[in-house]
Design a protein around this nucleic acid. Sequence first.
DNA 1: AATTACATCTCGCCC
DNA 2: GGGCGAGGTGTAATT
Lengths: 231, 231
Amino acid sequence: MRLVIARCSVDYVGRLRAHLPLATRLLMVKSDGSVLVHSDGGSYKPLNWMSPPATLRVSEPDDADRAEGITEVWTVQHAKSDDRLVISIREQLHESSHDLGVDPGLVKDGVEADLQRLLAGQIELLGAGFTLIRREYMTAIGPVDILARDAEGRTVAIELKRRGDIDGVEQLTRYLELLNRDPLMAPVRGVFAAQQIKPQARVLATDRGIDCLTLDYDAMRGVDDSASRLF
Amino acid sequence: MRLVIARCSVDYVGRLRAHLPLATRLLMVKSDGSVLVHSDGGSYKPLNWMSPPATLRVSEPDDADRAEGITEVWTVQHAKSDDRLVISIREQLHESSHDLGVDPGLVKDGVEADLQRLLAGQIELLGAGFTLIRREYMTAIGPVDILARDAEGRTVAIELKRRGDIDGVEQLTRYLELLNRDPLMAPVRGVFAAQQIKPQARVLATDRGIDCLTLDYDAMRGVDDSASRLF
DNA sequence: AATTACATCTCGCCC
DNA sequence: GGGCGAGGTGTAATT
């Protein structure tokens, strides 16, 4: 990885066009040819960038550029598209190179897949007498997160979200509509389960006869102690 | 902005939990307290990060950490939530600080990719005899992208997307439901137009009697040469 | 390789 | 502040 602090202007041409006026920025060149242009603020998204795979070519400025004080022109060309980033450098204030090696990568816990695994193992959270039919029940319009059977023997489709908003209710509604067309399966009722359910989503779900269930991930993780031994 | 290259492990606890095993990485500390942990690959997204506003506290390792070779512990605490990033540093290979100033920010030129403007000007793409009623036709639940009239004099609501997926079909369905409540306007039919339409979206649209239209942006741009003269 | 759905999405906009 | 829509989305899993 190469780190450069430079006064520069940047132009991107590709799926859109974008321009960064002259200012001092961090240029990060990664070993796969990708380049990130960061300012001293904002969040993790760079001001501008080129995704890998890409190649960086450093060239001399032409006469017009030189007259404007540009000392070096970086052309970062994407390997598989016409996307191009051109960095015009006026002054290089810092430069260093570092060998970082390959990163072992991130281990995550608490994403939707973890929620689904936990709820499938604690299906009684939905109510006494509930039994699991299966996870990821495939339909023509996508997989139903969890299919279960309630104490009365009725089929229940469960849609799981980390944050439950209107889109999730719409999704579950489509599944219910489809499943209820199957006379062998109908009537199927729905449960919308999420760590947090937005008020509007709750209203919409209730209006459509869909039950809402707020999940306590920490408590569920505590019950399944294989999860708590992850770290 | 402070740049540190260090052998470190990282733990994030907040909306989820995540762990980065020991490796050499770039730590970028921005002046708003945000921290980015980058490896020498991937794309612009860091391996882990803390969004601003946040505060960085550097502390001595406890005895257990010291025994494992940790020399410094960085705790990055988000100012408005319980999100926390803990960086355990074994070895600091590089350190530098830079004053970048405030960035003037990005100027996007081609952002308006005005598919809508182009289609409104080439409304005959929808079929012979189509005429434009208006763009951004306001309703109580939001603007219909384009409202047109077909050769038979019937009103047509058009939803435009760059990438057409199920959400767009749902959106158009809500508009159609509303517009068809108006006896002066009903019956209104729908057209779902996008550069690319996902199979599931096409199935749903067809099932609801909504026509699908795939748009060739480059061809449309070629017809309207004012667009090709933008730059 | 292409498709699909999730994301600590981020980033605007408008209300 | 929340809600909605778009992104040069990125990313992982599955087909």
